[in-house]
Design a protein around this nucleic acid. Structure first.
Lengths: 153, 153
DNA sequence: TACAACTAATGTACCAGGGCAACTATGCTG
DNA sequence: CAGCATAGTTGCCCTGGTACATTAGTTGTA
């Protein structure tokens, strides 16, 4: 087994731990909203207020579908529908405080759990881990936002 | 920023790349089956044939719910329902070749994409990356199977 | 101004997933 | 054998996500 393979192996193994963290952080939010709904919140969190049509297109769903989904989010108090001052026919969606808090809570939990793992790495090895993860991230390049959005990141 | 924080930061960054890979590999399977359905396939792939009731319990859904879901998987040709020779009332679920192939394809794609990233890491740094991921995985401990199952790993 | 284009909402319909309750068939045990 | 427990199926109902077609209101333009 060459070093590409064994490194890929170790990466896959470590990725299981990361996935578990991500799944756990997601699970807490999914008690409040569905995954498609949470994706919307993340989208708004990353981009600020957006027109409904834009969100629908980003999510790859029909505008009518999204209109209803947005309605559910509004009803749940996670987002607000605002008139677009520049365009009377358009509506802008904006996170409410609750919506923002939900997203923040997930990312916070994610951060905290990963920090806990890192803290469990012997201090002497931490710089090496830091350098290695940076090298890996660099080699991977910027992830496709569309892919990240699938799992609401 | 201490080195726990900056390392956690780098880890989060690297994890985005990993999540993108996982999302992509999952996406290809989700053209054929739904996520709840794929979870079933993974469960069977990891454990071999299982009684329906056991699967339902693992997934945390009602037996009646799962009975129908299993029916859809059978109809799709992904699993087979077998009489349990030891117990006339029980049914065992077993992956068909197609079901196994679907799961294998996802894990294969995942492996291949990660290997591609690793191959893009300069050879001189690869041993450090290997060591880092091992250290991280070790620090994280064994992930909770329940968490992994959420995202079908 | 009148008409076309755009944006969202709504009526209608469908499917997947989920639960509860009732039923069937089988297994176990006194 | 009678009666109870176990395993799964099915009827019924609800929610969420999805699409298509249509409608209503807004904007822009010929």
């Amino acid at each position: 087994m060459d070093d590409v393979e064994s490194t890929a192996d170790a990466t896959l193994h470590a990725s299981r731990a990361l996935v578990a963290v991500i799944a756990r952080s997601l699970a807490s939010a999914l008690e409040d909203v569905s995954l498609p709904q949470f994706r919307v919140l993340v989208l708004l969190s990353n981009n600020g207020p957006l027109r409904q049509g834009v969100v629908a297109e980003q999510l790859g769903v029909h505008a009518s579908t999204f209109s209803r989904n947005a309605g559910r989010l509004v009803a749940g108090g996670w987002v607000r529908r605002l008139e677009d001052p520049d365009n009377g026919q358009a509506k802008r969606l904006e996170l409410t405080d609750a919506g923002r808090a939900l997203v923040d809570q997930v990312t916070e939990q994610r951060r905290a759990e990963i920090a806990a793992v890192v803290a469990a790495v012997p201090a002497a090895e931490r710089p090496a881990v830091l350098a290695a993860f940076r090298a890996f991230a660099h080699a991977a390049g910027e992830p496709d936002p569309q892919d990240l959005q699938t799992l609401a990141m």
